[in-house]
Structures are given as structure tokens and as C-alpha cells.
């Protein structure tokens, strides 16, 4: 059992590590938080409609991602997220309250548990995870360039509008298939921590990209092991381990005089 969970955890952390790299480098950490929390509203709507929440989220969260990316000029992305994120959370709370749903199921989506992931979830993850990896392989140059500076990338012919929208959609899909493991509340930390740790120590695009994925896998494996040994919730354990890594590397950087 633990071997299967570790394999699943490693694969999910590779995908979220890749997403984390671009979430942090593009300064859209709040979008990750917004999309994952808005997904809570999606879970509630699916429960009320009586449909599978994950399948529903595969349609619902990309729409939220596109909505955030298309925020009008006079409304910043952060403002749009600040409005949409509490709206969908509130909508979720109201719907669950009114429909008297099973709260343990809601809890599992909020905080995740990798030990409860089924075969169907794993297969869905394999399909969506492969799509995320293919997208990044295909548009890696444009993603990196537009993460560095959208204006400069545009001047050199990168279609930054396409990259912006498509990344939001891919990020949303990545979030949906990671929810079972990490939960809506903790997923945002998983999208921020790996790249934030990597950027503390790495120099250069390639090196920081590889290190982000390695940190993501490492915090996932160590977190799952802790959760297994101490019988703790998996998502929370992974995030605590990741935060500890961040603090350690931050202190190391300070001690070595780089911060």
C-alpha cells in the first residue's frame, strides 16, 4: 500500500513541481490559491447536482482560471481572484449547508488524503498529468520567456495572451487531479513551496527548474512517510515538511550571506 501511495505521491509532486515553477516565476501564486479554493464551490455544486465532483471540477476550474486570466484592464488579476475566491468558497458553504451533505466527503476534498486515492483517480491523474507535462515540454521556451517578462517576450514574438490563458487552464487541470492527495486548502502551499525553496538556492533557468521538481518530490516522499508512520493527514504532513525545508534553506542562505 505504502509503495503505491509513494509512487502516486511522486508522480503528483512531479506535476505540481512543474506547475509550481511557473506559478512562482510568473508571480501568480495568488491565482493558485484562488483556483484551488474556488474549486470548493465546484465540489459543492457537484454534490448538490449528484455528479462526480472530480469530473465536474475538470470543467469548472478551467473556467475559473480563464475568468481570472481575462480580468479587465482596470481590474488587476489579484482583485479578480480576491473577489472570485471568497465568492466560490461562500457559495460552496451555502450549498453544502442547504443540502445537508455528508461532511466527511467535504472534509476529504478540503484537506485531502492520499491513502484514500482510488484506481480511477490514479488513471485520471495519469491522463491529465501527461497533458500537463506535454504542454510544458511544447511551450517551455515561451513559458519561461513570458515568466521572465511579458513585455519583452511579446516584443520577441511570443503570443503571451495564449500562454497566459493556456497556462491558467493547465494549472486548473493540475489542481483538480492533485486535490484528492493534498486537499483544496493545502494545495496552494504545494504550488508555492517547491519553487520558492529552489529559487532560494538555485541559479539559472534549467538548474532551478530541475531543483523545483526535486524539492517537490522530496517534500512529498518525506511527508507521506511521516504521515504513514505517525498516522497523520497526508496533505498536512507534506506541507509541514515543505515549510520546514523552506525555513532550513532560508536560514542557510542567510548564514551564507546571500540574503
Amino acid at each position: 500500500m505504502i509503495t503505491e501511495v509513494l509512487i502516486y505521491g511522486t508522480l503528483v509532486s512531479i506535476v505540481s513541481g512543474i506547475l509550481s515553477y511557473f506559478v512562482v516565476s510568473r508571480n501568480v501564486e495568488f491565482a493558485g490559491v484562488g483556483i484551488s479554493h474556488a474549486a470548493f464551490g465546484g465540489v459543492a455544486i457537484a454534490m448538490v447536482l449528484g455528479v462526480n465532483p472530480v469530473w465536474f471540477l475538470l470543467l469548472f476550474t478551467p473556467l475559473v482560471g480563464v475568468l481570472i486570466a481575462s480580468s479587465p484592464k482596470n481590474l488587476s488579476e489579484n482583485t479578480a481572484i480576491g473577489i472570485l475566491f471568497p465568492f466560490f468558497m461562500s457559495l460552496g458553504i451555502i450549498l453544502i449547508y442547504l443540502s445537508q451533505q455528508n461532511l466527511s466527503l467535504v472534509w476529504s476534498y478540503l484537506f485531502g488524503n492520499i491513502f484514500l486515492v482510488g484506481r480511477g483517480d490514479f488513471l485520471l491523474f495519469l491522463v491529465v498529468g501527461t497533458l500537463v507535462v506535454l504542454y510544458v515540454l511544447l511551450f517551455f521556451r515561451d513559458l519561461v520567456f513570458s515568466s521572465f517578462s511579458r513585455e519583452l517576450a511579446r516584443a520577441y514574438g511570443v503570443n503571451t495572451t495564449f500562454i497566459n490563458y493556456s497556462f491558467m487552464v493547465v494549472l486548473s487541470l493540475g489542481i483538480v487531479v492533485s486535490i484528492k492527495m493534498l486537499g483544496i486548502v493545502l494545495l496552494s502551499a504545494f504550488l508555492v513551496l517547491p519553487a520558492s525553496i529552489s529559487f532560494l538556492v538555485a541559479r539559472g533557468v534549467r538548474r532551478s527548474f530541475i531543483l523545483t521538481i526535486l524539492f517537490s518530490v522530496l517534500m512529498s516522499i518525506v511527508g507521506i512517510q511521516f504521515s504513514y508512520w505517525l498516522d497523520l493527514p497526508s496533505g498536512a504532513s507534506i506541507v509541514v515538511v515543505g515549510t520546514a525545508f523552506y525555513i532550513l534553506f532560508y536560514l542557510y542562505r542567510r548564514a551564507s550571506g546571500k540574503a
Binding site: 512562482v24 510568473r26 519561461v144 519583452l152 538555485a202 539559472g204 533557468v205
Partner: peptide, 21 residues
């Protein structure tokens, strides 16, 4: 440009920037 006002957090080296894209 005058300044890269929209620069993200990417830890890119000068070499990375030269070949970026």
C-alpha cells in the same frame, strides 16, 4: 525597454536572458 517593470521571480542568469525564447 527602459526597464523590465514586469520581471517575475525567475532566477535567470545573464546567459539565460540572452538566449531566452
Amino acid at each position: 525597454p527602459q526597464a523590465l517593470v514586469d520581471m517575475g521571480k525567475l532566477p535567470a542568469t545573464a546567459r539565460d536572458v540572452i538566449v531566452m525564447g
